[in-house]
Design a protein around this nucleic acid. Sequence first.
DNA 1: GAGCATCGGGG
DNA 2: GTGTACGATGCTC
Length: 819
Amino acid sequence: MAEKIEFFPLDATYKIDNGKAVIYLYGRTSDGRQISILDSNFEPYFYVIPKDGIDISEKLEKIRIENVNDVSFVAKTETVIKKFLGKEVFAIKVYTNLPSSVPVIKDVIKEWEAIESVHEYDIPFVRRYLIDKNITPLILHQAIGEFANQKSRVAVFKADNIEQVSSDTLHNPKVLAFDIETYSPFDLAIDAEKNPIIMLSFYGENFKKAFVWKRFKTDIDYIEFVDSESELIEKFKEVIESYKPDILTGYFSDGFDLPYIKTRADKYKIKLDIGLDYSELKVKSTRETTVTINGITHLDIFKFIKKVIGGVLETYSYDLNAVASELLGEKKHDVSLADLTNTWDNNHENLEKFCEYNLHDSLLTYNLAVKMLPTIIEMVKIVGIPIYDVNRMGFSQLVEWYIMKQAPQFNEIAPNKPSYDEVQQRRLNTYKGAFVYEPKPGFYKDIVVFDFRSLYPTILSSHNIGTDTINCACCEDIAKATPGDESEKHWFCAKRKGFIPTLIEDLISRRIRIKEIIKQENDEKFAFLDARQNSLKLLANSFYGYLGFFGARWYSIGCARSITAWGRFYIHKVIDKAQKEGFFVLYSDTDSVFLTLDGKSENEAKIFAESINSELPGIMELEYEGFYPSGIFVSAKLSPFGAKKKYALMSQQGTLKIKGFETVRRNWSLIAKDVQEKVLEIILRENDTKKALEYAKNVISDLRNKKIPIEMVVIRTQLQKDILDYAAKGPHVAVAQKLKNKGRSIGPGSIIKYVVTQGNDMIRNRSKLPEDVKEGEYDADYYINNQVIPSVERIFNVLGYKKEDLLEQKEQTKLEGFF
DNA sequence: GAGCATCGGGG
DNA sequence: GTGTACGATGCTC
């Protein structure tokens, strides 16, 4: 007897059962229970485009490849009329017995004489399924079928049919955040093989817990003692099993916490079988490690923040403290982690504050996840891919999968990913980027700022720029060519709308509709509507970069070039007109123009914008961004995918906005890190640039006068391979050799500490072990010019100071002697 | 200036 | 998993 259930899909995987692929969807039912839905009605396939439209189905159907353990064969074929880059093609849809047979068979046939090309052979089976069955994660679906008896932590339902039934969305998945602390001597590399996990904490809604395996006196009720590391790991499993989260989240948990837990669990032969199908947590280690749990979405919130919203954050670092400060207005607890090892060994009655610290990190992670969830959820709904994948995708991937999801509805076959050689070729294709009108560095008053609203997306749409409209045969004579001095001319079809322009127009108009609704909505709905319009904007803005990205399926250098060419054309138009009308143009970058009023009124500036708008095509629009009483400008740096802004504006409220400088890395000396931190603090908190400059100058003069202790000038670098394997010998390699000569065991992973001392030789020959360096022997000039100055130079540049201002010797006279 | 090496996040 | 990896920066040669 068939039953109906309603559920929100969260994640999906597939397994082979009796020689057939079965999709497992995991999610929540509409009444809040976890469930897994099985669907065995989907077959793997790919496309073949034969030469000259000759049907080779019969030949394809005979393919059968037998290996030791398995067999790959073509199950059936269908002939179809599809489109490829806008052109109609005759294609054969080749079904195989298993998903894994697709690449095997594709490799066999790709060189066949009768085949023009092979397509869509590398689409992960689950994604293919979600696209073809039109299943969007997190949206309410109905399944028809029956419950099955199968080993699982949750109910299992075998579906004959699954369909979306409404636009209801799972807005409040159950989130559980966690964090570990490990035993780690602070001047050695983190080593999961050697050092145990000593603390573990969880934070969820109405739930907090901190586990630790040494006892001490405490009144804190969320602290729970266990007796060993292995018991701690068992607690990790127990909490997850009983809390039943939809989402398990950590901060850099892909790269640290979960791989660490896995390594330790392996040591004790503990199975981390927390998957809803009792499968083990899986660590996949390639360039970027990822960790998967069947049925539980593992969200590494650090990765999402860095990849997707990093661009709009002010922070110069993505560590938890900086990110939580900016997004939540809350910091990490101020305890010294370097002290934890010692406290653990010798002082364990004082561990309480570390447990609080540990729990607080889970809390911050939880709050970050909850804060980001609306944006993540909307991105998932737009792109049509589960949270787990969206979490790990960059913008080009998000755009690509958005296009992939739409392609079947336009009957389009996807182009293939470029081969290695093709990528190398494409990397050489550079093109002119945005126009930048360099400002004269300095201080200005009465600034007004104009912005083209979504410049590149609106150009793409208004000029019908796409892979299927570029240089069409039908419009060569009538279409208007791209302006500028391009080596090659491009035009775009004037008769029919392109595939990509249609997609982007859809994104833009959906966003406009939502912004209209937001104006009338209450606060409750505001949060996710705002997240939605923001996700739409992020995605639309990424199309231009995608078209010029060397790894893109729908790569088109001509489209990318045309977009920037039109961008330069329009911004020039604004600049020329502004100058004609008597405004002073002080700075322009990509899509924005900064003018000074030069005696004119703010209203005249607004009227100017209106006159520009009356001449713009399609949905293009110049917006009046705002008025600033004062500001400082520095030159902007260009990159192929857009310009990096570098300026500071003082708003009418007196707040300072600094953009475009980066910070020092871990392998810098403490003095360099220290001075940057202090300078930023003084500028941002006290708004006192003179004081910041004085501070930096004091540090420089202390360096000159050899007042800085050796430990402040130690540089630490990790050895990546054996000393002999280095072709280029950096200072740390030279010092590592010295250590080895002293009989120390040095190898890959060792952290090499060194100090650069005075002399004229190459840096590596002047690099010594800190223990061999006498007080004051360090090379003051090196630390001033290569460490301190670079770490603060950009900051001061933005504020109008020069390197020389920093190097200027301090005046001798101070009146303090008189008092 | 090309080419190689390292970092990030986490403790 | 029918896949795949980045982008910026410093030092040597």
